Each structure stands twice: as structure tokens, then as C-alpha cells.
Amino acid sequence: MRIPGRSAAVLAALVSTAALAALSGCTVQPGDADGKHHLPVRIQLPSSNAPAVTRSAASGGQSASGGPASPASSAPATRPAGPAPRVLWSRGDNGSGVRELQARLRQADWLFDGPTGTYDDLTERAVSGFQGKRGLPRTGELDTVTWQRLLAMTHRPGRWELYLMGVQPADAPDPRCLTGRVLCISKTSRTLRWMVDGRTLQTMSVRFGSQYTPTREGVFHVYWKSRHHVSTLYDSPMPYALFFSGGQAVHYSYDFAARGYAGGSHGCVNVRDEAAIAALFAQARVGDKVVVHW
């Protein structure tokens, strides 16, 4: 069929524009505008007995009777056509990767327990809720697409965020802690070691003062023990207080136990495990060394 000259020119312009758009177009993952978000190297695949991804039926398919399926506004979210995203972790999996997932879900206010390092029912529900809020299929399994969205919304958790529900790993003790009876306190790992002659008898998580009321660093000694102490300056309880520098002491904190690292002290070394600080208070003596270090 012969095309009139003007129509042929318009058609050629449209084809040229479409070709340029195809050449310059690119696909960017949500939250990956700089192209630098990649899966961490340490990500582990789920165990071989982990359940497979549960996929919802495509809304554009056929009904059970063979006819076209009727559209419904309440139909579950579906992924674009193509290979299903790889599942990284699902219910029953364990490990450091799951712990990081839980810490990031806490940052996004989808999980309020843990991290525990175990992909349990609470984690599954949190992932499902996160997925549904963002138009992703509510599988409850952590896949690559869901993980990238979560990475874009959160920061890499520190060790204190990864171990909110337990004692986080303590770093190597300061050399000044290796002789005598010592409360060896690390600001880096946020831990307190109770050590006698270089041997660690007890370890507990601690928190410190804010930037305006920092916990002092250096070598001190316990100069006073006060089992039922109440701060005269802040009118707050300081049970099991072991004073080591002016008004600064190692003591149990109700606030730390309730809010974790969301808060801070006025310079004291807070302990959230009441049983642990009670045992330490019973063993520590006036004159015992206290080392606060990074």
C-alpha cells in the first residue's frame, strides 16, 4: 500500500522517537537510584527444607471454568511476569542474616521483638505486612525484591541493635583488665565483663551517657556500694549502684530494660539484666578496679 508523503514523514518521526526512547530507557530498582545497593556477601540461602515461595494466581488468567477471570479490586498483589525473585530466608531459618533482617524490620517499625536470629512466626508476619504495604505479594518469605526495598529504607544495624534481646559479643578485654578484680567496660561492644585475674566470670550488655553527659573513660575504683540508691540530682532509682567516679556508677536501669538503646544515661553505666547486676553487686567489693575503655 502506498503511503502519502506527509503521512510517511509523520510515521518516520514516530518510529525514530520510539527507537531513541528504547535506547535511552533504563530500569531502576526501587530504592536503588545510585545503583550501589547489592545483596550482602554474607547472605545465606535458606535450608533445603525451607518452604517454597507461595505465589498468588495472576489476575489476568482464566477462571476455573476456562473463561476469563473477572477483575476484583481486592485481588492479591502480583509480581510482573518473569522469573520469581529468589527467596533468601523463610520461616525456620537461622543465622546472622536473619538477625540483620529482624533488626532492620525493627527500624521500620514492623517488628518489636528480637532480634533473635530465628525466622519465627513474628518475623514472618512482619515481612508479610511490609510486603503488603508496598504492593508486593504477601508471602511472608524474604526474597530479593523485598530485601532491596527494606535495605533502601533502613541503615546497617550496629552490634547493639543486633543483640537487643541478649548479651552481644564482647570484644577483647583491655590489657588493664587482665590482673586483679576488674569491672572491664567496653564502649565499643557495649559490654561489661566481670573479671578476676584475667578470667571472665560474667558478661552483660550496658549503655552509657549521652554526648552531653558522657561516661568518663579511664581507670577507677569502686568507692561506694548502694543497693537501693535513688539519685538526688535526677530523682530516679539506681538499684545495685557501684559508684566509681563522682556521681557515675554501674547500676540497674528500668529505662534500659524497657527501651533498650533508644535512650541513654546521665553518665552512668546502665545494666538492663537485673539478675546479672544483682549477682555482680553481691560479688564486687569497695576497692575493685573499674576500667572504662573503647
Rank of each mutant, 00 (worst) to 15 (best):
A12T: 08
A13P: 01
L14H: 08
V15Y: 06
S16P: 00
S24H: 07
S24D: 03
G25H: 10
G31W: 02
D34A: 13
D34E: 14
H38D: 12
P40I: 03
V41H: 12
I43F: 13
I43S: 12
P46F: 04
S47A: 11
A52L: 07
R55M: 09
G60K: 05
G66S: 08
P68A: 09
P71D: 05
A72I: 00
S74H: 05
A75W: 15
P76M: 07
T78G: 14
A81S: 14
V87F: 07
D93M: 03
D93F: 06
N94C: 02
Q102C: 00
R106S: 04
Q107T: 09
L111S: 09
P115K: 13
T116H: 13
D120I: 07
D120Y: 07
P137W: 03
G140D: 11
L142I: 09
V145R: 03
W147F: 11
Q148G: 10
Q148L: 12
R156W: 14
R159K: 13
W160S: 10
Y163K: 04
L164G: 00
M165D: 12
P169L: 10
A170F: 08
D171Y: 04
P173C: 10
P173Q: 09
R181S: 15
R181G: 08
S186N: 04
S186E: 06
T188R: 13
R190A: 13
R193P: 02
V196A: 08
D197R: 13
D197P: 06
R199V: 15
R199T: 15
L201A: 12
M204Y: 01
V206S: 05
Y212M: 02
T213P: 00
T215I: 05
E217P: 00
V219L: 00
V219N: 00
Y223T: 03
W224K: 13
K225H: 09
H228C: 02
H229M: 03
V230Y: 11
T232D: 10
M238S: 03
P239K: 06
L242D: 08
F244K: 02
G246S: 00
Q248D: 04
V250E: 01
S253I: 01
Y254D: 08
A258C: 05
A258G: 00
Y261E: 12
S265C: 11
R272Y: 04
D273M: 01
D273H: 05
A276R: 02
L280N: 00
F281N: 03
R285D: 12
K289T: 15
K289G: 00
W294F: 09
W294D: 15
